[in-house]
Amino acid sequence: MSSTSADRPVPLGGLLLRWSCLSYLGVVVLFPLTAVVIRALSAGPVRLWKEIVNPFAWHAIRLSLTTALVMVAISVVTGTATAWVLARYEFPGKGFVNALVDLPFAVPTIVTGLMLVALFGPSSTLGVVLSGFGLPVIYEQSGIVLALLFVCYPFVVRSVQPVLENLDPAEEEAAATMGAGRWLIFRKVTLPALVPSIVSGAGLSFSRALGEFGSVVIVAGNRPLSTKTAPLYVYGEVEGFNVDGAMAVSLVLLTCSLISLVAASKLAERQG
């Protein structure tokens, strides 16, 4: 919305800035990434395809996609609710909760795994209770979702919260004076305004979840065809000297998360 300066000729300093930034981006991100893609493609499409449809790889990819989707579905609801509560209500301990939302960013991911096992693992009270209900969490697929939920918790909250805080209350108030109920106001007035930020938060969570390694490796149990996700599979293939297999699956992961990021930003743009 603020591209008024676009038509003016860029001064020398601006050009210098642009080129130094672009070269920095090139050296740090684009250049190494291209090297990987070239390395991956050098194996040939047939080989890559075979590596992807190999039942172990395919199961891992599918597992990663489904667990990430389930996580996003839960995270969108809980994240929006958290953002809502933080933005709209006053309650004791609010500042504390607000600060702790960022905790998953601050905790190294292996630590996340250890923490979750300590709390939900088979030797913990909670774990015993849960498996008593026939719902063992750690070392099962639900454990993967749990780890992803923890790791991605801040994304939706932090993208919805500022929008909610900046939202003009006039429309909601107008709807209220017209006699609309709370739920109707939320559905018809508030929610549409939040959708772009929810979508972009969801896209980020999804792409982060697809690549998550450190915490999942500890809580998943890592069983092939059962709880081995795609990043764990990639790690295994790298260690097992099957670099082609690792590259093939990484390419799939990379494509999926790129699609989700781009789709989210497009969707958010269209809605916004």
Partner: peptide, 22 residues
């Protein structure tokens, strides 16, 4: 688009990539 790529790349691959290149 390129700016967001580091989010999308699994860290293990990021490390491997640096070894391949450097």
């Amino acid at each position: 688009g390129v700016l967001d790529l580091p989010f999308a790349v699994s860290p293990v691959i990021a490390g491997l990539m640096l070894i391949i290149l450097y």
